[in-house]
């Protein structure tokens, strides 16, 4: 593949979302490092009070 065709092919893949642009990857990395909730969504609705907590 010629260099120009390689560039066009990569642009095609980026357009269809198969290779995310660098900015999206950087966002994902920053989120996983700094946004704690992104790592622990499972128990978000737990630990509300019910009378069982008094026993």
């Amino acid at each position: 593949m010629t260099p120009i065709r390689l560039v066009l092919f990569r642009l095609f893949l980026i357009f269809w979302g198969w290779i995310p642009p660098v900015g999206v990857w950087l966002h994902k990395i920053l989120v996983s490092l700094f946004v704690k909730r992104s790592r622990s969504p499972y128990g978000a609705s737990s630990r509300f009070y019910t009378p069982e907590d008094l026993t």
Binding site: Y42, G43, S45, S46, R47, F48, T50, E52
Partner: peptide, 14 residues
């Protein structure tokens, strides 16, 4: 109206 709150995969009580 209660159910067994133990053993729920997301520890819910609602």
């Amino acid at each position: 109206g209660r159910y067994d709150y133990g053993d729920q995969s997301r520890a819910t009580r609602f």
